[in-house]
Simulated scan of single mutants.
Amino acid sequence: MDLLDWHRETLSARRLALLVKHLPRESALNRELHGEAAEWSVSDHLLAAAVDHLAAANWMFASVNSEEGDQPDPPTPVPRPSYDDAEPPAAEREPDPATASTASDATPSAVQLARFFG
């Protein structure tokens, strides 16, 4: 697909917006918008939660069955991607007045597209 088709008016803005909206999770755009979180699937989050719960259960068992002075340290959770150290996701950022569109307008404006495609 040639993105210049949008400028040639052979590709509609609606179709372009649909293509961008449904990009794969591992696409460069999703990695730019969401950082490491774009690479985590639901299965990855569930697996991390299962590991954390198992570690907590083992810690509780060891805590109950150990002497008062010999308590184990609580487990550290599996590191998960966060938005704290990077830019927040696009949905949480303040809109830029030069490129802002109304909430009901799902298709990007010409200014937004030009800014995105450089």
Rank of each mutant, 00 (worst) to 15 (best):
P74H: 03
W59Q: 06
R115F: 11
E92F: 15
D96T: 02
D84T: 14
W59S: 05
V111R: 15
A48G: 07
P74I: 08
L54P: 00
S82T: 15
A57H: 13
A55W: 03
G118C: 11
E67T: 13
A56R: 14
D96Q: 02
E32V: 07
E94Y: 04
A49P: 00
L18P: 00
V78G: 00
N65P: 00
D2W: 10
A28L: 12
S104G: 06
S104C: 04
L54N: 14
S43T: 14
Q71N: 05
P24Y: 04
A56D: 14
V42C: 08
R80L: 15
E92N: 08
E26M: 00
T10H: 05
P79C: 03
P108L: 11
S82V: 03
E87H: 08
A37F: 01
D84P: 00
P79Q: 02
D96P: 07
P77Y: 01
A38M: 06
Q71T: 09
D70I: 05
S82H: 14
G69N: 13
A106L: 13
L33Y: 07
L46G: 04
A62G: 00
P72K: 02
T10F: 03
H7S: 09
S63M: 10
G35S: 03
E9V: 04
H7G: 04
Y83K: 02
A55N: 12
P81T: 13
S66Q: 13
R8G: 04
L4Q: 11
A37T: 02
R31Y: 07
E92K: 13
R31T: 08
S82N: 08
A48C: 08
N30D: 01
L29I: 10
E32D: 10
D96H: 04
A55C: 10
R93N: 05
D44P: 06
E87G: 07
D73L: 15
D84F: 05
P74V: 07
R14F: 02
D52K: 11
P81I: 11
M60R: 15
R115A: 14
V64F: 07
L11I: 09
L16M: 07
F61H: 08
S109C: 09
A103R: 11
A49R: 14
R15M: 08
G35D: 02
A56C: 08
A86R: 15
E92Q: 12
P108D: 03
A55M: 11
S12V: 00
Q71P: 08
A48S: 09
L113E: 01
R8N: 12
Q71K: 15
V20T: 04
D52I: 09
F61R: 09
W6E: 07
A100N: 06
A55D: 14
D105N: 14
D85F: 12
P81C: 09
A98L: 15
Q71G: 06
L4M: 08
P72W: 02
A48Q: 05
L46P: 00
P24G: 06
D5M: 10
A106F: 05
R115K: 14
D85P: 00
F116W: 10
V111E: 15
L11V: 14
Q112W: 04
W40D: 07
A13Y: 02
T102R: 15
D105L: 06
L18E: 13
A55K: 13
L113Q: 01
S27I: 01
D52P: 09
W6R: 12
P81G: 09
